[in-house]
Every structure is written in structure tokens, then in C-alpha cells.
Design a protein around this nucleic acid. Sequence first.
DNA 1: CCAGTCTTTCAGAATTTCCTGAAAGATCGG
DNA 2: CCGATCTTTCAGGAAATTCTGAAAGACTGG
Lengths: 173, 173
Amino acid sequence: MNTEDKNLKQARDEFVAQWGALGTQWGINRTMAQIHALLMTAPEPMTTDEVMEELQISRGNAHTNLKELVAWGLLRAVVKKGERREFFEAEKDVWQIFTIVARERKRREIEPALAILSKCAEDSSGIKTPEGKAFHEQMRALEDFVGFASKMSDRISSMKYGFAVQMATKLLG
Amino acid sequence: MNTEDKNLKQARDEFVAQWGALGTQWGINRTMAQIHALLMTAPEPMTTDEVMEELQISRGNAHTNLKELVAWGLLRAVVKKGERREFFEAEKDVWQIFTIVARERKRREIEPALAILSKCAEDSSGIKTPEGKAFHEQMRALEDFVGFASKMSDRISSMKYGFAVQMATKLLG
DNA sequence: CCAGTCTTTCAGAATTTCCTGAAAGATCGG
DNA sequence: CCGATCTTTCAGGAAATTCTGAAAGACTGG
């Protein structure tokens, strides 16, 4: 292997390792983040066995996380003609990646919060004591805000990239 | 205790329990989220012992998470005159809470990602092979996007609430 | 069908994260 | 200073999460 290929391999390994470590901060497990990093920077789709080999992980682990990434929409399973096994390739478009992650986070973080807040606001709506009113008011304020954030998230996620950038640029200007 | 007080206690306990469970999804530990919920809905500042009692947790746990919340800026330690022990009160303004959480998440999630991407883009900038170029390009695209997101986050976090709502409303309209 | 290949599942092991309880440290009034 | 009260730290235990490896299941070409 020549020097350039070695440098590339080193840079890519670094990326995979660091991205994996970062995954933890994002509430994503290390392996899932590593596989995502690996495939985002793979010139060709890869098989389960190649992923196992590259990351030195078990078949079960590789399988579970590959499927999870497919469920998110960050990977696609592809079939090559004449091949029985599945290959996986990553979505590489940054705006696509962003919208997928945003939607998933909304589903896992915002929506459950909204459900709790709505229920608590509802449950406390009839209480007449000053403390009850304060509690209700706090729940309502949070509910409003989180509901608002939820709508914003939808709106932005469904924009075309160009439009979002244009809008954001105006904001940053 | 009368019916209304009971209902309030029940609603509040529900909120604390659910918010705590949700904390896990947010990458925050359960106790920290519970304490935050408890204090956000407390009519008066509370002491460590009251928090321990209410949530049935150990002193160490209560102490550590109270301090962590203070470090985030979600709680303030207050002193009552004639009292030696510390009381804690929560920031209750939703926009404040949002900006604090946004800043913290940026620090823990976005900035490390940006550092990795910059380094990997830099390390691969000189590689001349097609695969090296593709890798470099992918790193650069991610770096650009994450850098952009970082700026956006700053910009929004430093807005006045009214302005942010106005802007967002235009977007939602 | 059968043999070979690939995929899926899952019980238990390994690892990571979180919590407890107790002891040590700080602060204060007298 | 001293005793009382409150705060901080941290070693070890508990709980939650993640990973392994092996076995069972599914598919395919012959």
C-alpha cells in the first residue's frame, strides 16, 4: 500500500474512532456511530462481514446496528446482482442526514415531552389554589414552547436545503 | 390535606416521575431531570434534605445533581437570611431554559463534532487519489454544515424571546 | 429436498453509568 | 477553640446498557 492510501486509511480510522466516541454524547451507542462513520466514508457499499472485520465487532452487534441505522434511514440495504448477501450504503447528503436525525430526535425527545406536559396541564387545569394555578401555568408555558419547537422542527426538516440556507443566511447576516 | 392539594401533589409527582424517565432520552440522568422537574414546579426554594426526602434519594446523589444543575445554570443557589443551609430555586422562564440547554448541547455535541471534522478534513487535504478526494470532500461538507449549525445555534440563543417568536412565526405562517 | 450461505435472535457476559452511605471537610455561633 | 450543622467527596455496590457467540431460521441453486 502506498503512502497516500496509508494516509487515507489513517484519517478514516481516526474519523471512525472519534465519531464513535462522540456518538455516546449524542445518545447513540458507539458501534452505531462507528458503523455510520465507516459507511459514510466508504467508496462502495459494504457487507456485514466487512463491517465486522473493519470494526472488530461481533456478528450480532454488527447486524443489530446495521438494521437500526436502516430503520433510521441513515443506511440503505442494496443488492448487487449475482450476490446473495446484503450490502449497505450510507446516505451521504448532509441535509438529508440532518433532517433524518432531526426527525428522529423530535420523535424520541420532543413528542414524549409534549405528551407529558399536555397531560399534566390538563390534570391540573381545575385546581383553584394559588399553588395549583402556578403549577398549571408552568405546565402550559412549557407545553406551548415545546409544541412550538415541534412545529419549527417539522417546518425546517421539510424545507429544501437551498431554501433553508437562504433563510438561515438572512438570519446570520 | 384537602382534595385540591391532593390532586396537585399527584399531578406534580406524575410530572417529576415522567420528566425523570424522559431525561434518559435526553442524555441526562434520571435524578438530574427529576430534581429539575421538582424545582421547576416548587413554589419555594428547597434544601438538599427536602429534595432527598421528596425523591427518596441519597445525600450524595442529591448533592451531585443539584450542583450539576447549578453548573448548567438551570438552578440557582440562594441564601435565606437567618438560615445556614443552601436553598435551590429553578429558572422557570422557558426561553431561558431553552437557551441554557441549547448552549450546553452545542458545547457537548456540536463543538466536539466540529473539531473532529476539521481535523479529518485537514489531514486528508493533500491526498490525491480519487478515494482520498471523496473522503476529504465528505469531511468538508460535514464540517461546513456543522459549522453553520453552530453559528445558527449561537444566533438563536442570543435572541430576545419576542424576536425569536416573531421570526419563527413568520416561518410557520 | 438438501447443502451451503446468509440473516436473525437472544441468553448471558462485559462494560459503562449511576447511586449509596459514610467519612472527611468546611463554616458558624457561642 | 469547640460542638453543631451543613457540604463535599469517593470507594464500592447496583442498575442499565451494550456486546458476544452460538444456535436457529430463512433463502437459494442445484
